[in-house]
Amino acid sequence: MGDLDFGVVWTNLGFLGNGLALSALLVVVSSVGGMILGGGLAALRLSRHRVLRLPAGAYVTVIRSVPLILVLFWFYFMLPLWTGHTIGALPSALVAYVMFEAAFYCEIIRAGIRAVPPGQTAAAAATGLSRWQVMRLVVLPQALVAMGPLLVNQVVILFQDTALVYVVALRDFLTAASVIASRDDRPVELYGFVAVVYFVICLAGSQLAGRRRREVIQ
């Protein structure tokens, strides 16, 4: 066993930081885009009209049944074929993550809305509020309380899943670390450091979700 030397982390901090920045970019764009698209999908899935409900349901079911890595490949290789332009790894990865996450956010949002008792809708409608007002003023505020921790949890899972972008030759945090680990032959130090950073960020995320839940209940 050679001696541990964490100096290698310090000297390559800039390189690792660039990797972490890419991971952060993926998380922010994919979670925000995924929630917006997922909210739209949830609205379609809850619609009274079959023509809106069925395609949205099919989309969610298909996406949730394939591995994320396949979706990444798909958009990397297929988008250029469809559009006739080369788009580059990063835009194709962002599109893939947004499309993938949307299916999961859709189901979280839909479940949150359905968890609000139907009596709430009836009581609000009986006072003359329109369908949209009932949703915005009575149902959604209650649904958000139920789904808040699940949404944060999904962001934490997404952060872990960003490590998969190495398959389209992007260098996220983990990939950056593995490059240096093999170049400098320091796998223990680098993978150890990476594990600690992932742990701290994810723990902070789930603590935040837990604290918000307690605040809301009070």
């Binding site: 009596g119 009836a122 009581a123 409608a125 009986a126 006072t127 003359g128 509020l129 209650q142």
Partner: peptide
């Protein structure tokens, strides 16, 4: 909605809005 605004209704299980206080419940509509 316009007709319902003129018909008050009270339900078996009250169905007050739990995320609002009493005053907000009465003011919303």
């Amino acid at each position: 909605p316009k007709l319902r605004a003129r018909i008050g209704m009270v339900f078996q299980h009250f169905d007050l809005y739990p995320h609002m206080n009493v005053l907000q419940n009465i003011c919303l509509a």
